[in-house]
Structure formats: structure tokens, C-alpha cells
Computed example of a mutant assay.
Amino acid sequence: MLPNTSICRLVTLSLLALFAPSAFATNAKVLIYSATEDFRHDSIPTAIQALQSKGPSFDIQFETTEDKAQFTDQYLARYDALLFLDNTGEVLDDLGKAALQKYLDLGGNFIGIHAASDCLRNTTFYGHEVGAFFDYHPALQNATVDVIDSSHPSTSMLPAQWHVQDEMYNFKSDPRTIGATIILSANESSYIDTGTRLNQGTPHPTAWFQERGAGAESNGTAGRSFYTSLGHLNETWQDELFLAHVFGGITWTLQSNTTLAFNTSAEVGNPSVSVDPTSSSSSTTGTSTSSSSAVISVPPIDVLPLKFMVLSIIAATFFPWLSSFYLGRFVLTAYF
């Protein structure tokens, strides 16, 4: 039988393992922008509901807007990624486009879904960020999508040949020309398309990613970009395999380490600690650095995670042998 002290240590370590990860987790914040000026998909509300309901399982908080006036430097800076959902037409004015450009230059991440490639058609930097502009699609029908890269988090769960009912998008250019990596391809022999395709490259691009979003300016800090052209139907957004594909792309995008949810030196995003907006900073291509004069404000005691407070009380009351060294480490972790 273990001595009492050993049992106490075992219980305490188990409690720490149980409480610590969730107590200090940081939620990423993503803005869903679903404004439309041309065709509007009736699946938009279903898509938003699916994203928001599953978000907490991935430590992601989704907020939504269709108000182009929200595209300001201050508003966009709150988010670790922008998710353009089924947008069509001129959904931003010049001020909004400038704010979007600045957000991308500061390391903001981008996710585009389905018709997101059919908006802002004359805005070059947006076309580069999404990867390619939509051209046309044949009639909605059953088709096969081939997995080109099964190692990506958005495709690792998919069968090698994925049978879907969706619109097989064609594009005005090849996403590979701006540095995108194709991960899904429409199998052109599996459906009927009598249209004239432009030079979109081979294999047929259907979903892709960019390690460094090409919409950021050359002197900016580029975040990641992910795009999937699938997602037309309400039924699609109720399919668990499709949602796994989408969330795989979202979580991969958020891991760029260019936003405040994961990098305290970043210049945009949802921070785990607050960065004084008056502090000066500079950025170079591929990196983000804050000056030594940046002021980090420590959260007040009342935001200390409740689970940690409970754990501390338990430890202090029942396990007095627990050293202040370990307790101190947890306090520092909670704050910094």
C-alpha cells in the first residue's frame, strides 16, 4: 500500500492534470462575414449555426456580421481569422478593403468557403488571398472529389475518393501560380460539365491552402489562408464529414502563430493578455516583432480561472506539503 504522502501526491498530480489544461486554454476568435450583393445562398444560416455550435469543441469563438461598416482597423484587430462565407459581389467599400488589407499585412488569417471566391472580383489582393476567383459551375450534381494531399488536417479524415453532391467550381486562374497548395481536386470524369474552362491548372483545384496568404503586401506579416469551394447545400452543412473538413482547415489556419491568441508579440487577434495599443511595433516579412517599450497589462485577479482558484484552495487546505514553488509556477502560468 502506498504511504499517505504518496497517495496525496498522486491525487494532487491527478487534479493538476485535470484542471490545468482547460484552466489556461486560450480561445481563438473568428469573425464570420456573410454579406452578399449578388446571389445569396439559403444555406448561410445553416452554415453559421453549424460553425457556432461546434466552435467550443475546438476552442474557437465565432462572431458574425454582414455589416461592411464593421470593417475598420480597430474592429478587425480583435480577430485571429476572418471567415468569408458565401459572399458574392462588392461586399466591401474602399474603406473596408483598406482595413482588410491592413489586417492581412499585420498577420491576420483568412478562411474562404464556397462562394467566397465570387466577391470583390476586381480587388487584386483579395483574389490573391482567397487564391483564385470563381468563374462558373455546371449544374448541381453528384461528383467525386479526389484527395490530393491526405496529410493536411482538412483532408486527413476523408476517403481518397470523396463522393459529394455539390457544385464543382471552375476558376479564372490557377491558385498554384500565387503559391497555393491544392489538397482536393474535382474528378472531371465523375460529372457533366459542358462549359469552357479557363487556365485553372491540373489537377482541377477544389480546395487549397497558403502557408503565407498572398494577399498580404510584401513588407507585411502574412498569416495563413485556407479555401474550400464546397458547401453549397443546407444538407452539406449537416454532414459531419464535411464539417470535419472545414474545421480541419480552420484549425490549421489558426496555427499560423501570427495572432495574439497564440503569440503575444502579434499585432492582431484575440489576446490572452492585453497589449497596450499605444506601444510602438514594427514588422518584417514573415515575422512580427514588438518594441521593448510595449506594455503588457496583467489581468486583474478576478479573471483568474475559477478552476485554478478551486484547485489552490484544495491544495492549501488538504495538502500543506505542496510546495510554494509549484503553486507559484501555476500562478505565473495563469497570468503570463
Rank of each mutant, 00 (worst) to 15 (best):
K68W: 01
T72W: 07
P56F: 01
Y33E: 12
T46Y: 06
F318W: 10
Q255Y: 00
V145C: 03
D118R: 15
L332P: 01
D73M: 02
V310C: 14
V30C: 14
L13Y: 11
V91K: 08
T36H: 06
D174G: 12
Y103C: 11
S282T: 15
G179P: 06
Y33D: 07
S323N: 08
T278R: 13
H152Y: 05
W162T: 08
A17R: 06
Q200T: 08
D166M: 03
A266V: 09
F209P: 00
K102I: 07
H114I: 13
T36K: 01
D93G: 05
Y326I: 11
I296P: 00
G269K: 03
A160Y: 00
D149M: 04
L100V: 09
N87L: 10
L85F: 06
E267F: 10
E37P: 00
A69T: 13
T278K: 13
P277A: 07
T258W: 04
T144G: 01
N109R: 05
V30F: 14
P271I: 13
V11C: 13
A294Q: 11
S292T: 14
R176Q: 02
I148L: 06
S151K: 08
I192M: 03
Y227M: 12
I7V: 07
L51W: 02
F84C: 04
F226V: 09
P175C: 14
N142H: 10
A334N: 04
T289K: 08
T181F: 01
F125H: 10
G328A: 07
S272H: 11
T177E: 02
S190E: 12
E188S: 15
E217Y: 05
N187Y: 04
I183A: 01
F58V: 11
Y126N: 08
Y33N: 11
T264H: 04
A214E: 03
L260S: 04
Q210K: 08
I314P: 00
E240R: 12
I182R: 00
F262T: 12
E37S: 11
T26S: 10
W162S: 00
A261K: 01
P305V: 06
G131T: 02
D166Y: 03
F24P: 00
Y326E: 10
Q52K: 15
M1Y: 07
V246A: 15
P138A: 06
R212T: 09
A207N: 03
A214Q: 06
G108K: 06
N142W: 03
L306Q: 07
T64M: 12
T88K: 12
V91Q: 04
T221Y: 07
E267G: 13
A47G: 15
S173V: 08
G131A: 11
L254G: 07
N27H: 11
